[in-house]
């Protein structure tokens, strides 16, 4: 290690440490410390009505992992939601990006209109959707009945409610994909596409053999970011269904929230949150590799 009398770091290193200190402090205060407190809580019997904080070891973890609700409803819901939402918004976003990448009249206006969902707060979007899909006053049922079809109790049945949640999330996030993929498309070199045009390549082959592989890195980053984000979705589900009917549309963050802040069992809630954190850590790493490999072909 460093010799006696020599300063621990060189002058330049000390200056760099000084520069990152504020950020490091903020991170520690608002990220590391809460996680540590949460982790601590997850090993203790900690509830508002029971302030003794008795050490119970892995008891909460066992309880969560053996909760059939968590294993057979919440986890499957979370992953189905993640896959459908990420894939749906990716496909739609890519389609729109391809459309916007070729010039047409009114392109700028279309581009701006498409971005509107990005500017809407998810909670507001969810409220909008809840009204639209309300089984008595909603416009969706009104239109259906106008067409002579039967209105559906959208938010009262598990899979229709789940469908509305997924649809809302796709609607919210498609423009985000469009924006990033369009930027990716526009940064691609022109010449390979010209070479392909001269080589007599069909539009579909250009898409599968040039556009997709060349956009690979952008797509991978988008999917990984969004997948992790989707795993943590809370607001739209809470607003749309509150996890109902029953607990059938509960996602992972709702599960943890309900435990910690509705049943006020901080210990159990923290354990659930940490389990989720570990799951998404693994899922994220695996996803990154898998998507990268798929896109490489």
């Amino acid at each position: 290690m460093t010799g006696a009398g020599r300063p621990l770091f060189g002058e330049q290193t000390r200056f760099m440490l000084l520069l990152i200190t504020p950020a490091a402090l903020l991170l520690t205060l608002f990220q590391v410390v809460p996680i540590a407190i949460g982790a601590n809580a997850s090993f203790r019997d900690w509830a508002l009505y029971n302030p003794k904080k008795t050490w119970v070891g892995l008891h909460h973890y066992e309880a969560v992992l053996s909760d059939p609700e968590f294993l057979w409803v919440v986890l499957p819901n979370t992953f189905i939601f993640m896959i459908l939402s990420v894939a749906g918004a990716l496909v739609l976003g890519l389609a729109l990006a391809l459309l916007l990448n070729r010039p047409f009249a009114g392109q700028k206006i279309v581009q701006t209109v498409l971005l509107v969902p990005l500017m809407v707060a998810p909670v507001i979007a969810a409220i909008m959707m809840r009204w639209m899909f309300n089984d008595q006053f909603g416009i969706v049922n009104a239109v259906l009945e106008g067409l002579g079809l039967d209105g559906q109790p959208w938010l009262v049945e598990r899979w229709t409610a789940f469908g509305v949640i997924v649809m809302t999330d796709i609607w919210l996030w498609t423009p985000w994909y469009t924006l990033l993929l369009l930027a990716g498309l526009q940064s691609l070199p022109r010449e390979p596409f010209e070479a392909a045009a001269i080589d007599g390549t069909s539009t579909w082959r250009v898409f599968t053999h040039l556009t997709l592989p060349m956009l690979r890195s952008v797509i991978v980053v988008c999917v990984v970011i969004r997948a992790i984000d989707a795993f943590r979705t809370f607001d739209i589900v809470w607003t749309l269904t509150g996890g109902g009917p029953g607990r059938s549309t509960e996602l992972f963050s709702l599960y943890a929230y309900v435990l910690a802040f509705l049943t006020l069992d901080f210990g159990r809630g923290s354990a659930a949150a940490i389990i989720g954190g570990l799951i998404i850590l693994v899922v994220g790493a695996v996803l990154y590799r898998v998507v990268d490999r798929i896109a490489r072909v």
């Binding site: 010449e191 390979p192 070479a195 001269i198």
Partner: peptide, 16 residues
């Protein structure tokens, strides 16, 4: 371009 039966070499190669 594809129906003209021409081939082109580009300045920056334009390889895939």
């Amino acid at each position: 371009p594809r129906d003209r039966d021409v081939a082109m070499v580009f300045q920056n190669y334009a390889l895939y």
